[in-house]
Simulated assay, not measured.
Amino acid sequence: MSGQRVGRRVFLRGAGGATVASVAAASVFAPSTTGQAQAAPRARKKSTAATFRWFGTAGWRIDIGARTLLIDPYLSRYSTGMFDGKFNPATELTVDTETIDENVGKPETILVTHSHWDHFNDVPYIAQKTGARALGTMTTYNLALACDVPSSQLSQVKGGEVLDFGAYTVEVVASLHSRNASYSVAFPGVRLSRPEKPKTVGDLPEGDTLNFQVTLKDGPSVFFMGASDFVERNVTGLSPDIAMIAMQASGSTYDYAERVITALNRPSVIVPVHWDDFEVELDNPPKPDPSTKPHMDDFIATVQKISPRTKVVVPEYLTPYQFG
């Protein structure tokens, strides 16, 4: 069964029986009912209004009333040859200021899962222009310093922190980066001190990986991944209402989808991310990354098997969704 694209708004219902969210013309979507309920429904509180927009890859914009939070905002999307089999690590870092300015709003906080270019590339520009605070690993901190972001706008985190921003809290979860078919991480390494200003994609190492759980005040909790691996013990017990789960990059990680869905206690909504070709423009429908395995149909089938009551929302670029 293939995932259906979802239109403008999707509402999380703790007692819903949907497996794949279906399209409707109105703002509330009638779910398909392909599986019998097995997971217990979540108790829901009165929800804080929030709108989510997918930037592609693992990137998100979250508007909570008049406040804006970004996660891994990468909008420049230039070619490195990655999807043509001609990847060039010497590709010059490029910032598409026009596209960024049109889409990021006025963020106050930027959460960065790790420092590869498809997650970090646009962060320094956004932070400098908007004054937003960027939170990430020590590597992210030092690379941002090297890109002339003031230290007063940077916060180094490593996992275990629970930070209160008033309208929302952010729990930082130490995690792992996905591995390729050779069981290796692309561009490994850390930056424990301020380096020279990065100029190429190869100058941006992974630098450790984080996940974030954002909980809206009196609203849903949302788990965000930036890469398709995780530390099972670190996420067990988080039990988010919504999980933005990175699609598996290779088969190197054992039972990845099954384990992460189970460890997160079968979220009511799962949104697959990091499955698109992020070197083309933000045109809908998104073009899949041909190397992503398993493919979307297989991922959805796994969700149906592990958690029949979970709704799978396959996102489109820059489309406003509401969960809550």
Rank of each mutant, 00 (worst) to 15 (best):
Q153S: 13
Q156V: 13
G159P: 02
G160S: 04
G160C: 04
G160I: 03
G160Q: 06
E161K: 11
A167V: 14
Y168A: 12
T169R: 11
V173E: 03
H177W: 11
S178Y: 02
S182K: 14
Y183C: 10
Y183D: 15
Y183T: 12
S184Y: 12
P188T: 02
P188S: 04
G189E: 05
V190W: 01
S193M: 12
R194C: 04
V201P: 08
V201D: 05
G202Q: 01
G202L: 08
G202V: 11
D203L: 02
D203E: 09
L204Y: 01
L204M: 13
L204H: 07
G207F: 08
D208L: 11
D208P: 01
D208S: 14
D208Y: 09
L210T: 05
N211L: 05
N211T: 09
Q213W: 04
Q213H: 11
V214A: 03
T215V: 07
L216G: 01
K217L: 08
D218A: 13
D218E: 15
G219L: 07
P220T: 09
P220L: 11
S221Q: 06
V222P: 04
F224R: 05
G226Y: 01
G226R: 05
A227L: 08
A227S: 15
S228R: 02
D229P: 01
F230I: 07
F230V: 14
F230S: 10
E232K: 15
E232C: 09
R233W: 04
N234S: 12
N234I: 05
N234G: 03
V235L: 04
T236D: 10
L238W: 06
L238Q: 04
P240K: 07
D241A: 14
D241Y: 11
A243P: 00
M244F: 15
A246T: 10
A246Q: 07
Q248G: 12
S250C: 06
G251L: 13
Y254S: 09
D255Y: 08
Y256V: 00
A257Y: 12
E258P: 06
R259C: 06
R259Q: 14
T262N: 12
T262F: 00
T262P: 02
A263Q: 05
A263Y: 00
N265T: 14
R266D: 10
P267C: 06
P267S: 03
S268N: 15
V269N: 05
V269A: 10
V269L: 12
V271D: 01
V273T: 11
W275Q: 02
W275G: 02
D276S: 07
E279W: 09
E281N: 11
L282D: 11
L282C: 07
D283H: 13
N284S: 08
N284E: 10
P285N: 06
D289P: 06
P290S: 03
P290W: 00
S291D: 15
S291W: 13
S291Q: 08
S291F: 15
T292D: 06
K293S: 15
P294V: 00
H295F: 12
M296R: 08
M296G: 14
D297P: 09
D297R: 15
D298K: 11
